[in-house]
Design a protein around this nucleic acid. Structure first.
Length: 279
DNA sequence: AACGCATACAACCGCGAACGT
DNA sequence: CACGTTCGCGGTTGTATGCGT
């Protein structure tokens, strides 16, 4: 039947987004909400394809994104989850509030892979390097850096792995790259912490405290000095948003609580790329 | 200062799943 | 149930920036 191109390639702009485009997209999404990405560019007056708009929004412009490098807790969590889920970045990202799959994927490829390799651990299989691939697979114990051995009892995909994750995520054809597809069997059911983590879509690591509506901006900073590097900048960003209609942006949720502390959480758009919005 | 290489990350592409008709 | 459309995901690429020589 042939796939219809997601957009008319000829009339679509590609490459880095400009501040103007960002403004248009933010303005549109916050005014109208996320609906039918295919229609967004037209309605927002952008010469981009819907796909590109969605990506830009979800990976970069969403106000609830954290910015900055993953902290140790997050990084360890990514490793743990990767050991269990493989390259299912979206699933991993779902456990890290404010982080995107793209961000985690990039961080994995640029930082964690190397780190694990240095530690003598194969970042793909999470097994010690130079160890031949066997039916025994390793997974990180959730609370420790050292890998814990989990015996792969049999090749048949055991349905005993943790319930939700397995049923939901094993349906994916993309098994982790672990040898002989053993990944699906290395979910240590006995690990209550990981079971909990994988069952709940709620923040649980230390840094998630920053999502608990810190009482004051300073309190927020003390909790999360990665993402809250510049509260003033966040304020400035939001104020700038007002210039192009943030009143209608639909941040109604912010009315309930102190604006400043909410921006700590939701407006962590402090990278230089975002700051171009201030210009 | 200039060049080349390495690194980090934003963005693109293609595929498959989900959904609607 | 078949087909078409849209969306989301994961892999990959392109480019800006940093660093060493």
């Amino acid at each position: 039947m042939g796939r219809q191109p997601c957009c008319d390639k000829l009339s679509v702009k590609k490459g880095p987004w400009t501040a103007e485009e960002d403004k248009k997209l933010i303005n549109f999404i916050l005014t109208n909400g996320q609906c039918c990405w295919r229609a967004v560019p037209k309605l927002a007056g952008l010469l981009r394809c819907g796909k590109s708009c969605r990506l830009r929004w979800t990976n970069y412009l969403r106000p609830d994104l954290k910015r900055g490098l993953l902290n140790d807790a997050e990084e360890q969590l990514v490793i743990d989850l990767h050991a269990r889920l493989g390259n299912r970045w979206s699933k991993i990202a779902a456990r890290l509030p404010g982080r995107t799959d793209n961000e985690i994927k990039n961080h994995w490829n640029t930082h964690i892979k190397k780190k694990l390799t240095k530690m003598g651990i194969d970042p793909v299989t999470h097994e010690p390097i130079n160890k031949p691939c066997t039916t025994t697979t390793r997974a990180f114990n959730s609370s420790k850096q050292t890998p814990s051995v989990v015996v792969d009892h049999q090749p048949e995909p055991a349905k005993t792995e943790e319930s939700q994750v397995s049923s939901e995520e094993n349906s994916s054809s993309s098994q982790p790259e672990n040898c002989s597809g053993a990944e699906s069997n290395n979910r240590d059911d006995d690990d209550p912490l990981m079971n909990f983590l994988l069952e709940k879509d709620i923040p649980f690591f230390d840094d998630a405290l920053s999502w608990d509506f810190p009482a004051t901006p300073s309190a927020g900073n003390s909790i999360n000095n990665v993402s809250l590097s510049s509260w003033e900048e966040n304020c400035a960003w939001l104020l700038d948003c007002q210039d192009f209609g943030v009143e209608e942006f639909g941040f109604g949720c912010f009315n309930d609580v102190d604006m400043g502390m909410d921006m700590n959480m939701n407006m962590n758009m402090t990278t230089s790329s975002n700051m171009h919005l201030l210009e």
